[in-house]
Amino acid sequence: MMYCLIVDDSRTIRKVSREIVESLSFEVEEAENGEAGLSRCRARMPDVVLLDWNMPVMDGYSFLKELRRSPGGGMPKVVFCTTENDLDHITRALEAGADEYVMKPFDKAILAAKFQELGLLSESLSL
């Protein structure tokens, strides 16, 4: 079973995201900020990270740059999942090593399509 780490300071977003990702047959863990997310990654590197941008302690952008510098940190697919919906933020995220970018609000169809595109889901899955 693939393992997804959700890094978001909003408990509600984490809950909704967990429900969607679990329905796609992923094992899910949560972290409430970038620093906690890095700790989770050091303990067990996920297959995919769903990452918020604005968070206390350590934001998603700093998390991503730190992750990509870490041993094995190039492996997880990182999908930003944020309300920062402008081209400048998207470009910065891609330059920092993000694989995909989801603009909030989102739904299961969007997330499933992104996961499918990243090769995390079977192409035969009906979206």
Partner: peptide, 20 residues
């Protein structure tokens, strides 16, 4: 709209071929 460009369109193609 935002929903339509997110369903299936890789983000790199959005950045490359779309204007916000």
């Amino acid at each position: 709209n935002q929903f339509e460009v997110q369903r299936g369109l890789p983000i790199r193609l959005l950045v490359k071929y779309f204007t916000q």
